[in-house]
Structures are given as structure tokens and as C-alpha cells.
């Protein structure tokens, strides 16, 4: 099993619903976020292009955050989801320094927090909160090892990219372009 997400940049409108929904679903303290929106504008008026991306932890296959963690608080579970156990985390910040995407944040309670792929929902067979709320249906989630999952299908059909592939982390979030 290999959980992954695809983000359709051709449909995302940058509304940030995924950010708000993650906040209310996961008790993310205000002022912090597990996901965020990036807007990329290129060209000169009136020849302009724009890409909008909803970003979060890439649940990297080759996760430097996990490697760098001195306590094992950062770890990978079944399906490739990268998690942090707050009770094992000492808040040293090594994982944050190690993540090329700055996908983690220092929780005000001391430990480091990040996207969990909403494992508490996924375990029940539900989609992550951000996926479920997205009004444009531009987020796809599922098992890459299952060729019939939503995410496998779009990744097979569409052109995609991952972020900062040169960092060598093998991200599992695919941006459809």
C-alpha cells in the first residue's frame, strides 16, 4: 500500500478551504497550518500564466525528516504515511531543518506537527479532510498500489510534476499540470 495525493493545478482556485478544513478537523492552532496555498505568476501583462498549488507534507518515500529525527518521533507507518508522535518528540527541530518543503511547524505545545494525511479518517475509509472539502474536487487521494484508486488513475492519465525533485526525497504528492 502506498498512500499518495494528486493536486490538479488546472482546477485549484486557491480558495484555502483545504487550509481551513484541516484546521478545524485536526485542531491545528490558529496561526499555524499543515497545508498552504502557493500562487506562481509568470509573464508580462497581458501574456500572463499562473499556477495555484495546495501544498502539504509530501510524505516522502525517502524522508530526510525521519532520518534526522534523534528520537524516532518522526516515523513512517503502513502506507508510507510520515507521522510524528508528540510524546516522543523533544522539539529539537532537526526534522524541520531537514525538510526541503518546510512542511512542518513547531506546535505551540512544544512538539513538531505536520500533515498526517488525516490517518484517523483514512483508517476509517474516509478521505482526508482537505480532500473531502475541496469545492473544485482538485485533490485526489488514495493508494498508488491500487491501479483503480482515484489517485492512480489521474497520475496515470495526466502530466504531473513533484516539488523539488532535486532534493531527492521522492515526494508522494503529485501536481497535475
Amino acid at each position: 500500500m502506498r498512500y499518495a495525493m494528486a493536486v490538479d493545478t488546472k482546477k485549484c482556485v486557491g480558495c484555502s478551504d483545504c487550509v481551513v478544513a484541516c484546521q478545524t478537523e485536526n485542531n491545528v492552532p490558529l496561526g499555524y497550518a499543515r497545508d498552504w496555498i502557493v500562487e506562481n505568476v509568470a509573464g508580462t501583462y497581458p501574456k500572463v500564466e499562473m499556477e495555484i498549488r495546495s501544498e502539504r507534507c509530501n510524505h516522502c518515500e525517502n524522508a530526510p525528516c525521519v532520518r534526522c529525527c534523534p528520537t524516532g518521533a518522526s516515523h513512517i507507518v503502513e502506507g508510507g504515511i510520515v507521522l510524528v508522535t508528540p510524546e516522543e518528540c523533544i522539539g529539537c527541530g532537526a526534522c524541520m531543518e531537514a525538510c526541503p518543503y518546510d512542511a512542518r511547524y513547531p506546535h505551540p505545545d512544544g512538539f513538531v506537527d505536520k500533515c498526517t494525511f488525516c490517518i484517523h479518517r483514512v483508517e476509517k475509509g474516509e478521505d482526508p479532510a482537505c480532500v473531502e472539502v475541496c469545492p473544485t474536487h482538485c485533490l485526489y487521494f488514495g493508494d498508488l498500489d491500487d491501479p483503480n484508486s482515484d489517485v492512480s488513475k489521474v497520475v496515470a492519465e495526466r502530466k504531473w510534476k513533484v516539488l523539488a525533485p532535486e532534493a531527492g526525497t521522492k515526494p508522494q504528492i503529485f501536481y497535475l499540470i
Binding site: Q23, T24, N27, P29, L30, C118, H120, R121
Partner: peptide, 14 residues
């Protein structure tokens, strides 16, 4: 307001 609105640490998702 912070703790009112979100994570007051007492409630875990799920």
C-alpha cells in the same frame, strides 16, 4: 480565543 477555536489539546481528532 486560540484555545477556544482550535486545539486545546484535550480533543484528539477522531
Amino acid at each position: 480565543a486560540f484555545s477556544q477555536v482550535t486545539g486545546d489539546g484535550t480533543i484528539h481528532p477522531g
